[in-house]
Design a protein around this nucleic acid. Structure first.
Lengths: 175, 175
DNA sequence: GCCTCTCGGTTCGGTGAATGAACCGAGGCT
DNA sequence: AGCCTCGGTTCATTCACCGAACCGAGAGGC
Protein backbone atom coordinates (compact mmCIF):
# COMPACT_ATOMS: atom_id res chain seq x y z
CA UNK A 1 0.00 0.00 0.00
CA UNK A 2 2.73 2.43 1.01
CA UNK A 3 1.09 5.79 1.29
CA UNK A 4 4.50 7.33 0.91
CA UNK A 5 4.81 11.00 1.67
CA UNK A 6 1.07 11.44 1.74
CA UNK A 7 0.46 9.90 5.09
CA UNK A 8 2.52 12.38 7.01
CA UNK A 9 -0.16 14.85 7.91
CA UNK A 10 -2.56 12.07 8.77
CA UNK A 11 -2.32 12.63 12.47
CA UNK A 12 -3.12 9.00 13.03
CA UNK A 13 -1.02 5.90 13.42
CA UNK A 14 -3.37 3.87 11.32
CA UNK A 15 -1.71 5.38 8.26
CA UNK A 16 1.73 4.51 9.55
CA UNK A 17 0.67 0.96 10.32
CA UNK A 18 -0.81 0.61 6.86
CA UNK A 19 2.43 1.69 5.29
CA UNK A 20 4.01 -1.45 6.67
CA UNK A 21 1.21 -3.91 6.78
CA UNK A 22 -1.28 -2.60 4.24
CA UNK A 23 0.60 -3.43 1.08
CA UNK A 24 -0.69 -6.09 -1.22
CA UNK A 25 0.14 -9.60 0.04
CA UNK A 26 1.69 -8.47 3.31
CA UNK A 27 -1.10 -9.58 5.64
CA UNK A 28 -1.34 -12.91 3.85
CA UNK A 29 2.38 -13.48 4.42
CA UNK A 30 1.91 -12.70 8.10
CA UNK A 31 -1.10 -14.99 8.30
CA UNK A 32 0.99 -17.80 6.86
CA UNK A 33 3.67 -17.05 9.43
CA UNK A 34 1.04 -17.57 12.16
CA UNK A 35 0.20 -20.88 10.52
CA UNK A 36 3.82 -21.91 10.93
CA UNK A 37 5.13 -21.23 7.44
CA UNK A 38 8.74 -20.15 7.71
CA UNK A 39 10.62 -20.64 4.47
CA UNK A 40 10.68 -18.59 1.29
CA UNK A 41 9.74 -21.52 -0.88
CA UNK A 42 6.78 -22.46 1.27
CA UNK A 43 5.34 -18.96 1.26
CA UNK A 44 5.84 -18.95 -2.48
CA UNK A 45 4.07 -22.22 -3.09
CA UNK A 46 1.15 -21.43 -0.83
CA UNK A 47 0.43 -17.84 -1.81
CA UNK A 48 1.01 -17.81 -5.59
CA UNK A 49 2.81 -14.55 -5.11
CA UNK A 50 5.41 -13.30 -7.61
CA UNK A 51 8.90 -14.16 -6.37
CA UNK A 52 10.13 -10.59 -6.49
CA UNK A 53 7.17 -9.32 -4.50
CA UNK A 54 7.64 -11.97 -1.83
CA UNK A 55 11.34 -11.15 -1.50
CA UNK A 56 10.47 -7.49 -1.16
CA UNK A 57 7.76 -8.08 1.44
CA UNK A 58 9.93 -10.36 3.56
CA UNK A 59 12.75 -7.81 3.53
CA UNK A 60 10.37 -5.00 4.47
CA UNK A 61 8.86 -7.01 7.30
CA UNK A 62 12.27 -7.95 8.66
CA UNK A 63 13.37 -4.34 8.51
CA UNK A 64 10.21 -3.26 10.34
CA UNK A 65 10.87 -5.80 13.09
CA UNK A 66 7.76 -7.84 12.33
CA UNK A 67 9.65 -10.87 11.11
CA UNK A 68 13.06 -12.06 12.15
CA UNK A 69 15.47 -13.87 9.88
CA UNK A 70 17.06 -16.84 11.53
CA UNK A 71 19.67 -19.25 10.18
CA UNK A 72 18.48 -22.75 10.89
CA UNK A 73 21.12 -24.71 9.00
CA UNK A 74 24.58 -23.91 7.71
CA UNK A 75 25.14 -26.30 4.88
CA UNK A 76 23.66 -25.24 2.65
CA UNK A 77 22.95 -21.96 4.42
CA UNK A 78 19.21 -21.60 4.92
CA UNK A 79 17.23 -18.98 6.78
CA UNK A 80 13.71 -19.01 8.13
CA UNK A 81 11.42 -16.12 8.85
CA UNK A 82 9.83 -16.03 12.30
CA UNK A 83 7.29 -13.65 13.78
CA UNK A 84 8.70 -11.36 16.43
CA UNK A 85 6.73 -10.20 19.44
CA UNK A 86 5.75 -7.14 17.42
CA UNK A 87 4.53 -9.35 14.61
CA UNK A 88 2.67 -11.69 16.94
CA UNK A 89 0.63 -8.78 18.24
CA UNK A 90 -0.92 -8.48 14.81
CA UNK A 91 -3.08 -11.51 15.61
CA UNK A 92 -5.57 -9.10 17.15
CA UNK A 93 -5.92 -7.51 13.71
CA UNK A 94 -5.71 -10.52 11.43
CA UNK A 95 -8.12 -12.76 13.29
CA UNK A 96 -11.02 -10.29 13.51
CA UNK A 97 -10.56 -9.40 9.84
CA UNK A 98 -10.58 -13.05 8.85
CA UNK A 99 -13.74 -13.70 10.84
CA UNK A 100 -15.38 -10.56 9.47
CA UNK A 101 -14.72 -11.82 5.95
CA UNK A 102 -16.13 -15.19 6.86
CA UNK A 103 -19.31 -13.78 8.42
CA UNK A 104 -20.12 -11.59 5.47
CA UNK A 105 -18.72 -13.30 2.40
CA UNK A 106 -18.79 -16.97 3.20
CA UNK A 107 -20.64 -19.06 0.68
CA UNK A 108 -20.71 -22.26 2.65
CA UNK A 109 -19.37 -23.68 5.84
CA UNK A 110 -16.34 -22.64 7.77
CA UNK A 111 -13.03 -23.54 6.14
CA UNK A 112 -11.00 -23.36 9.27
CA UNK A 113 -11.69 -23.43 13.00
CA UNK A 114 -9.68 -21.91 15.82
CA UNK A 115 -9.89 -23.36 19.31
CA UNK A 116 -8.45 -22.48 22.66
CA UNK A 117 -5.97 -25.34 23.01
CA UNK A 118 -6.37 -25.56 26.79
CA UNK A 119 -10.11 -26.30 26.69
CA UNK A 120 -11.00 -27.03 23.07
CA UNK A 121 -13.58 -24.25 22.85
CA UNK A 122 -13.96 -22.34 19.59
CA UNK A 123 -12.86 -18.74 19.79
CA UNK A 124 -15.31 -15.88 19.42
CA UNK A 125 -14.93 -13.30 16.60
CA UNK A 126 -12.25 -11.32 18.41
CA UNK A 127 -10.15 -14.24 19.64
CA UNK A 128 -11.54 -14.70 23.14
CA UNK A 129 -12.40 -18.02 24.75
CA UNK A 130 -16.06 -17.99 25.81
CA UNK A 131 -15.61 -20.99 28.11
CA UNK A 132 -12.55 -19.87 30.04
CA UNK A 133 -13.54 -16.24 30.02
CA UNK A 134 -10.08 -15.52 28.67
CA UNK A 135 -10.30 -12.18 26.91
CA UNK A 136 -7.01 -12.52 25.08
CA UNK A 137 -6.06 -15.95 23.83
CA UNK A 138 -2.46 -15.74 22.65
CA UNK A 139 -1.72 -17.20 19.21
CA UNK A 140 0.54 -19.82 20.81
CA UNK A 141 -2.45 -21.17 22.71
CA UNK A 142 -4.62 -21.57 19.65
CA UNK A 143 -5.17 -24.75 17.74
CA UNK A 144 -6.24 -24.39 14.12
CA UNK A 145 -8.04 -27.13 12.30
CA UNK A 146 -9.78 -27.78 9.00
CA UNK A 147 -13.42 -26.75 9.16
CA UNK A 148 -16.45 -28.59 7.77
CA UNK A 149 -16.44 -26.64 4.50
CA UNK A 150 -14.03 -28.54 2.29
CA UNK A 151 -13.35 -27.00 -1.13
CA UNK A 152 -14.11 -29.15 -4.16
CA UNK A 153 -10.54 -29.35 -5.42
CA UNK A 154 -8.21 -28.46 -2.59
CA UNK A 155 -4.77 -27.04 -3.25
CA UNK A 156 -1.95 -29.54 -3.37
CA UNK A 157 1.03 -27.42 -2.38
CA UNK A 158 2.86 -28.73 0.71
CA UNK A 159 1.56 -25.99 3.01
CA UNK A 160 -2.06 -26.53 2.04
CA UNK A 161 -1.70 -30.28 2.45
CA UNK A 162 -0.11 -29.88 5.87
CA UNK A 163 -2.82 -27.47 6.96
CA UNK A 164 -5.50 -30.02 6.13
CA UNK A 165 -3.81 -32.98 7.76
CA UNK A 166 -4.38 -32.42 11.47
CA UNK A 167 -5.05 -29.82 14.15
CA UNK A 168 -2.05 -27.60 14.51
CA UNK A 169 -0.82 -25.10 17.06
CA UNK A 170 -0.29 -21.60 15.70
CA UNK A 171 3.32 -20.39 15.44
CA UNK A 172 4.66 -23.95 15.55
CA UNK A 173 6.58 -25.00 12.44
CA UNK A 174 4.23 -26.51 9.91
CA UNK A 175 6.69 -28.41 7.75
CA UNK B 1 -5.28 -4.38 -3.02
CA UNK B 2 -7.58 -6.62 -4.99
CA UNK B 3 -5.93 -9.97 -5.21
CA UNK B 4 -8.09 -10.68 -8.20
CA UNK B 5 -8.24 -14.26 -9.40
CA UNK B 6 -5.29 -15.20 -7.28
CA UNK B 7 -7.11 -15.34 -4.00
CA UNK B 8 -9.45 -18.10 -5.02
CA UNK B 9 -7.47 -21.07 -3.84
CA UNK B 10 -6.55 -19.32 -0.64
CA UNK B 11 -8.91 -21.34 1.48
CA UNK B 12 -9.19 -18.45 3.88
CA UNK B 13 -11.55 -15.54 4.16
CA UNK B 14 -8.77 -13.18 5.02
CA UNK B 15 -7.97 -12.96 1.31
CA UNK B 16 -11.58 -12.21 0.47
CA UNK B 17 -11.77 -9.54 3.14
CA UNK B 18 -8.58 -7.97 1.86
CA UNK B 19 -10.00 -7.78 -1.62
CA UNK B 20 -12.55 -5.32 -0.32
CA UNK B 21 -10.81 -3.59 2.50
CA UNK B 22 -7.13 -4.06 1.75
CA UNK B 23 -6.81 -1.69 -1.16
CA UNK B 24 -4.79 1.44 -0.77
CA UNK B 25 -6.76 4.19 1.03
CA UNK B 26 -9.79 2.04 1.83
CA UNK B 27 -9.19 1.60 5.55
CA UNK B 28 -8.42 5.28 5.93
CA UNK B 29 -11.74 6.13 4.31
CA UNK B 30 -13.49 3.81 6.73
CA UNK B 31 -11.61 5.28 9.67
CA UNK B 32 -12.81 8.72 8.65
CA UNK B 33 -16.33 7.38 8.44
CA UNK B 34 -16.01 6.27 12.08
CA UNK B 35 -14.86 9.77 12.92
CA UNK B 36 -18.10 11.08 11.44
CA UNK B 37 -16.89 12.19 8.01
CA UNK B 38 -19.73 11.70 5.56
CA UNK B 39 -19.29 13.80 2.45
CA UNK B 40 -17.11 13.35 -0.61
CA UNK B 41 -15.50 16.73 -0.23
CA UNK B 42 -14.63 16.18 3.42
CA UNK B 43 -12.97 12.83 2.76
CA UNK B 44 -11.10 14.52 -0.06
CA UNK B 45 -9.83 17.39 2.01
CA UNK B 46 -8.81 15.27 4.96
CA UNK B 47 -7.13 12.39 3.20
CA UNK B 48 -5.27 14.06 0.30
CA UNK B 49 -6.49 11.23 -1.86
CA UNK B 50 -6.81 11.60 -5.64
CA UNK B 51 -10.41 12.41 -6.56
CA UNK B 52 -10.74 9.47 -8.93
CA UNK B 53 -9.46 7.01 -6.35
CA UNK B 54 -11.86 8.31 -3.71
CA UNK B 55 -14.82 8.03 -6.09
CA UNK B 56 -13.78 4.49 -6.91
CA UNK B 57 -13.34 3.45 -3.28
CA UNK B 58 -16.65 4.93 -2.18
CA UNK B 59 -18.45 3.13 -4.99
CA UNK B 60 -16.74 -0.16 -4.13
CA UNK B 61 -17.58 0.18 -0.45
CA UNK B 62 -21.22 0.98 -1.19
CA UNK B 63 -21.43 -2.00 -3.50
CA UNK B 64 -19.91 -4.23 -0.83
CA UNK B 65 -22.47 -3.05 1.72
CA UNK B 66 -19.89 -1.41 3.96
CA UNK B 67 -21.08 2.12 3.30
CA UNK B 68 -24.55 3.29 2.44
CA UNK B 69 -25.32 6.26 0.24
CA UNK B 70 -28.01 8.44 1.67
CA UNK B 71 -29.58 11.61 0.24
CA UNK B 72 -29.63 14.22 2.96
CA UNK B 73 -30.83 17.21 0.95
CA UNK B 74 -32.63 17.63 -2.36
CA UNK B 75 -31.71 21.07 -3.51
CA UNK B 76 -29.04 20.84 -4.59
CA UNK B 77 -29.06 17.04 -4.42
CA UNK B 78 -26.41 15.88 -1.97
CA UNK B 79 -25.59 12.42 -0.69
CA UNK B 80 -23.67 11.30 2.36
CA UNK B 81 -21.87 8.02 2.98
CA UNK B 82 -22.73 6.23 6.20
CA UNK B 83 -21.28 3.08 7.70
CA UNK B 84 -23.64 0.12 7.63
CA UNK B 85 -23.74 -2.51 10.36
CA UNK B 86 -21.29 -4.53 8.29
CA UNK B 87 -18.96 -1.55 8.09
CA UNK B 88 -19.29 -0.76 11.77
CA UNK B 89 -18.04 -4.22 12.62
CA UNK B 90 -14.70 -3.27 11.14
CA UNK B 91 -13.96 -1.25 14.27
CA UNK B 92 -12.59 -4.43 15.78
CA UNK B 93 -9.99 -4.45 13.02
CA UNK B 94 -9.23 -0.77 12.64
CA UNK B 95 -8.83 0.07 16.30
CA UNK B 96 -6.30 -2.69 17.16
CA UNK B 97 -4.31 -1.84 14.04
CA UNK B 98 -4.26 1.84 14.95
CA UNK B 99 -3.10 1.08 18.46
CA UNK B 100 -0.51 -1.38 17.22
CA UNK B 101 0.91 1.34 14.98
CA UNK B 102 0.94 3.74 17.88
CA UNK B 103 2.69 1.33 20.24
CA UNK B 104 5.46 0.52 17.82
CA UNK B 105 5.95 3.55 15.63
CA UNK B 106 4.97 6.46 17.79
CA UNK B 107 7.63 9.11 18.10
CA UNK B 108 6.01 11.09 20.87
CA UNK B 109 2.82 11.20 22.81
CA UNK B 110 -0.57 9.91 21.80
CA UNK B 111 -2.29 11.92 19.09
CA UNK B 112 -5.75 10.74 19.89
CA UNK B 113 -7.47 9.10 22.85
CA UNK B 114 -10.52 6.86 22.87
CA UNK B 115 -12.69 6.61 25.97
CA UNK B 116 -15.71 4.64 26.96
CA UNK B 117 -18.29 7.43 26.93
CA UNK B 118 -20.31 5.94 29.79
CA UNK B 119 -17.45 6.06 32.31
CA UNK B 120 -14.67 8.11 30.72
CA UNK B 121 -12.09 5.32 30.94
CA UNK B 122 -9.53 4.96 28.18
CA UNK B 123 -9.95 1.84 26.10
CA UNK B 124 -7.39 -0.94 26.09
CA UNK B 125 -5.60 -1.96 22.87
CA UNK B 126 -8.49 -4.06 21.61
CA UNK B 127 -11.32 -1.66 22.42
CA UNK B 128 -12.41 -2.98 25.80
CA UNK B 129 -13.22 -0.85 28.83
CA UNK B 130 -10.99 -1.90 31.75
CA UNK B 131 -13.18 -0.13 34.30
CA UNK B 132 -16.58 -1.49 33.30
CA UNK B 133 -15.21 -4.88 32.30
CA UNK B 134 -17.00 -4.38 29.00
CA UNK B 135 -15.24 -6.61 26.51
CA UNK B 136 -16.76 -5.02 23.43
CA UNK B 137 -17.28 -1.30 23.50
CA UNK B 138 -19.35 -0.40 20.45
CA UNK B 139 -18.08 2.50 18.32
CA UNK B 140 -21.19 4.49 19.14
CA UNK B 141 -20.24 4.40 22.82
CA UNK B 142 -16.73 5.72 22.24
CA UNK B 143 -15.65 9.28 22.67
CA UNK B 144 -12.56 10.34 20.71
CA UNK B 145 -10.45 13.27 21.76
CA UNK B 146 -7.21 14.99 20.89
CA UNK B 147 -4.30 13.44 22.76
CA UNK B 148 -1.38 15.20 24.43
CA UNK B 149 0.88 14.85 21.39
CA UNK B 150 0.04 17.87 19.25
CA UNK B 151 1.82 18.06 15.90
CA UNK B 152 3.95 21.14 15.25
CA UNK B 153 1.90 22.41 12.33
CA UNK B 154 -1.50 20.79 12.45
CA UNK B 155 -3.57 20.36 9.31
CA UNK B 156 -6.08 23.08 8.61
CA UNK B 157 -8.69 21.24 6.56
CA UNK B 158 -12.19 21.37 8.08
CA UNK B 159 -12.16 17.76 9.24
CA UNK B 160 -8.82 18.08 11.01
CA UNK B 161 -9.93 21.29 12.67
CA UNK B 162 -13.18 19.75 13.85
CA UNK B 163 -11.35 16.67 15.17
CA UNK B 164 -9.15 18.90 17.33
CA UNK B 165 -11.93 21.07 18.67
CA UNK B 166 -13.62 18.91 21.26
CA UNK B 167 -14.33 15.34 22.34
CA UNK B 168 -16.55 13.68 19.83
CA UNK B 169 -18.69 10.56 19.74
CA UNK B 170 -17.74 8.12 16.99
CA UNK B 171 -20.19 7.73 14.11
CA UNK B 172 -21.86 11.05 14.92
CA UNK B 173 -21.64 13.63 12.12
CA UNK B 174 -18.50 15.69 12.48
CA UNK B 175 -19.43 18.71 10.36
C1' DG C 1 36.06 -32.74 -12.22
C1' DC C 2 31.56 -32.24 -14.13
C1' DC C 3 26.66 -32.56 -14.46
C1' DT C 4 22.38 -31.74 -12.33
C1' DC C 5 19.24 -30.47 -8.80
C1' DT C 6 17.28 -27.33 -5.15
C1' DC C 7 16.78 -23.16 -2.88
C1' DG C 8 16.44 -18.32 -2.69
C1' DG C 9 16.56 -15.02 -4.78
C1' DT C 10 17.39 -10.92 -9.02
C1' DT C 11 16.38 -9.08 -13.71
C1' DC C 12 13.46 -7.51 -17.08
C1' DG C 13 9.70 -6.40 -20.40
C1' DG C 14 4.66 -5.79 -20.24
C1' DT C 15 0.42 -4.40 -17.83
C1' DG C 16 -2.64 -2.30 -14.75
C1' DA C 17 -3.49 0.83 -10.99
C1' DA C 18 -2.49 5.29 -8.58
C1' DT C 19 -1.50 10.11 -9.21
C1' DG C 20 -2.50 14.95 -9.98
C1' DA C 21 -4.05 18.40 -12.85
C1' DA C 22 -7.56 19.82 -15.91
C1' DC C 23 -12.12 19.63 -17.26
C1' DC C 24 -17.27 19.14 -16.77
C1' DG C 25 -22.23 19.48 -15.51
C1' DA C 26 -25.92 20.25 -12.18
C1' DG C 27 -27.54 23.47 -9.32
C1' DG C 28 -27.53 27.44 -6.33
C1' DC C 29 -26.69 32.62 -5.50
C1' DT C 30 -26.75 37.66 -6.91
C1' DA D 1 -25.85 36.39 -17.20
C1' DG D 2 -21.77 35.39 -14.52
C1' DC D 3 -19.72 33.13 -10.81
C1' DC D 4 -19.47 29.85 -7.15
C1' DT D 5 -19.62 24.99 -4.96
C1' DC D 6 -20.00 20.22 -5.05
C1' DG D 7 -19.10 15.80 -6.89
C1' DG D 8 -17.44 13.80 -9.84
C1' DT D 9 -14.84 12.16 -14.94
C1' DT D 10 -10.87 12.35 -18.23
C1' DC D 11 -6.31 11.91 -19.37
C1' DA D 12 -1.27 11.65 -19.55
C1' DT D 13 2.40 10.25 -16.49
C1' DT D 14 4.42 7.42 -13.01
C1' DC D 15 4.79 3.52 -10.31
C1' DA D 16 3.88 -1.05 -8.44
C1' DC D 17 2.72 -5.71 -9.71
C1' DC D 18 3.18 -9.54 -12.68
C1' DG D 19 5.24 -13.71 -14.54
C1' DA D 20 8.78 -15.78 -16.96
C1' DA D 21 13.57 -16.18 -17.45
C1' DC D 22 17.88 -16.06 -15.50
C1' DC D 23 21.54 -16.58 -11.81
C1' DG D 24 24.75 -18.19 -8.08
C1' DA D 25 25.75 -20.94 -4.01
C1' DG D 26 25.92 -25.30 -2.46
C1' DA D 27 24.87 -30.57 -2.32
C1' DG D 28 24.96 -35.00 -4.36
C1' DG D 29 25.87 -38.42 -7.99
C1' DC D 30 29.23 -40.43 -10.83
Amino acid sequence: MALGKNYEGQNCYLARALELVGERWTLLVIRDAFYGVRRYGDFLGHLDIPRAVLADRLATLVEAGILERHRYQDSPPRDEYLLTERGTELWSVIFPLMRWGERHFSTGESLRTFRHAACGTELDPVSRCPACGLTDVAPGDIEADTGPGVPAQPRQDPVSVALRRRPHRLLQPLL
